[in-house]
């Protein structure tokens, strides 16, 4: 049995000035709703939903990379993606002052 969160109990006191801040308030509302859902339900229940969401993204990524290596053009794209990834590590250097 999955316990439901009463949406009336979820409140976010953020200003809404435009679409961007409206979207942000909605996302923060969803995060609070989800945290409450986690508290009301067993780990098995909430984590099943989380795993479905995360796993589907990795399945798509896996298909994407497998398709790329099939063609010459795809392999070139893959090479560029890998180069971008390596550059990312170098540019993240400035963040190392903390983590």
């Amino acid at each position: 049995m999955v316990a439901k969160v009463d949406p009336k109990n979820i409140f976010v006191d953020f200003p809404v000035n435009n679409d961007k801040t409206r979207n942000f308030r909605s996302r923060i509302w969803s995060i609070k709703y989800w945290a409450e859902f986690m508290k009301l339900n067993s780990d098995e229940v909430w984590s099943k939903g989380q795993a479905d969401l995360i796993d589907s993204q990795f399945i798509k990524a896996d298909e994407f990379y497998k398709n790329l290596v099939k063609t010459e053009k795809g392999r070139e794209v893959l090479k560029r993606l890998n180069e971008d990834r390596l550059n990312k590590f170098k540019t993240k250097k400035e963040l190392r002052s903390l983590f």
């Binding site: 780990d43 098995e44 909430w46 796993d55």
Partner: peptide, 20 residues
Amino acid sequence: MDYNAQKKEIYTRKVLNELD
């Protein structure tokens, strides 16, 4: 999920996803 701050432990029976 249970958090025991004194023991510095979090215990979970979560279903593991691909990242986990």
